[in-house]
Structures are given as C-alpha cells and as structure tokens.
C-alpha cells in the first residue's frame, strides 16, 4: 500500500492518460459507429456494402494490429497526426497529447466503431416496425426516419450493449500502452519491474482501479437506462 502512496502522482498521471484515451475514443467511436450503422441500414447499396465490409474486416482483426497500422503504416501514406501537440501541464508532470496519442485514439476509435455499429444495428432492428412505417406515412425521408424516429429509440434499446462496448474500450486502452502512450499498463509494468517483490500488491491495486472504473461506467449506464425507459 505504501508503494501506491509513494507513487500516487505517477499512477494518477497514468490513469489520466487511460481516461483521456477512453473519452476521446469513446466519443469518436459513437459518432463513427452511428454513421456506419446508418450506412448499413440505408438505401444506397455501395454504402451498405462498404459498411458491411468495414465491420467484418475490423471486427476480425486484433486491436493490436489495428493500432499498429495507425502507428506505423499510416505515416507512410501521409496520414500523420503531427498537428496534434497539446501539452497540459499538471502539478505532477505533463500530459502530452501528441501524434502518438492521437494515432492510438484513432486506432481505438476505428476498432470500437465496428462494435458500436453492430450494437446500434441490433437496436434499430429492435424498434417496432410500426414506428418506421408511421414515420414514412407522414412523409419523412430516410434521413428523417432515422434521426427523428428510429435512432432515438434504437439508442434507448442499445444502452446495455453500447455500455458493454464502451467498457471493453476502457479495458482496451491498455493496448495503447504497449505502443507508446504512458498509461496505466505501462506504469504498472514499470513498477513491477522495479519492485518485483510487490507483484501481488501492484497487480491487485491496478486491477481494482480498473474494476472501479468499470463499475462507474455500468452504474452510469444503469441510470441512463432507467431514465430513458418507456414504461
């Protein structure tokens, strides 16, 4: 326990990275996933086909490989993130949102979006037929049917699966640690290396922080679900 107190600042900084990775990739994946879901249920065959291909490709690729792609291959095709260079000074060290961080966020976003898309699509399928039919009957076009009627209800039906996808994302941020972002996993590895005798304490401590973060997320999702439930 003393070890944690002694390194509290470094650990807090590491989890700041974890949370930032999660927030950026979480928002990004929701937006991209919604667009993909719209593509997959929409009327234009090319887009439907592209959306399906995307989901199948990305879902079956290990996350590590997706992120490595953005870290190594993307710069070769001029897809660089060097324009991102924000240093947030904190009392305990700088939080650096740089090109490496951005590449990892993009990788996590691309990966998670495929799962968001699938969760939403199953949500769209769960919306009663009559809703879409009624929307069409009053003359709404596809975009109107989706944004005004179907998607709002789909979101409601998909809160639990979406929450699961986002929880998986939170845990997946550790993969960015293996590719150059100094987040929680990197810090734990370093601490274990320097204090091999404290292996159990360190692991259980870091694991419990993750358990707490996960529980916070599922608590929020339960509250959201309660609030928007139609009874």
């Amino acid at each position: 326990m003393e070890l944690f107190w002694e390194h509290r600042e470094a650990i807090a900084l590491a989890f700041a990275y974890t949370v930032l990775l999660f927030l950026f990739a979480g928002i990004g994946s929701m937006v991209l996933g919604t667009v993909l879901a719209a593509m997959r249920v929409g009327p234009i065959p090319v887009l439907r086909w592209a959306g399906t291909l995307y989901v199948h490709l990305v879902r079956n690729t290990p996350l590590v490989i997706v992120i490595i792609f953005f870290r190594i291959a993307a710069p070769k095709i001029d897809l660089k993130f060097n324009f991102v260079d924000v240093v947030i000074p904190t009392g305990v060290g700088d939080v650096r949102l740089n090109n490496i961080f951005t590449a990892c966020v993009v990788g996590l976003t691309i990966y998670t979006a495929a799962f968001v898309c699938e969760a939403l699509r199953s949500g769209v399928n769960a919306v009663p037929l009559g809703q879409a039919e009624a929307a069409r009957a009053i003359g709404l076009p596809f975009s109107g049917v989706m944004t005004q009627v179907v998607l709002p209800q789909a979101f409601r039906a998909t809160i639990p699966p979406l929450a699961n996808v986002q929880i998986a994302l939170l845990k997946n941020t550790t993969v960015a640690g293996a590719l150059g972002v100094a987040e929680a996993f990197v810090r734990m590895r370093l601490l274990i290396k320097n204090n091999p005798a404290e292996l159990w304490t360190l692991f259980i401590g870091f694991a419990l922080i993750f358990v707490i973060l996960v529980e916070v997320l599922s608590f929020i999702s339960h509250r959201l679900e309660r609030r928007v439930r139609v009874s």
Partner: peptide
Amino acid sequence: VGVPSASYAQCAEDVVNGTV
C-alpha cells in the same frame, strides 16, 4: 521525455516517419 517502444526497429521507423 522517454517514449517506450516494443522494439528498436519500431523506434527507427518512428524517427524516419517524423513521429518522434
């Protein structure tokens, strides 16, 4: 500021790319 990497080959690639 140290940037940890899986291998030196990967580091070199990052230098060539201008990532670091």
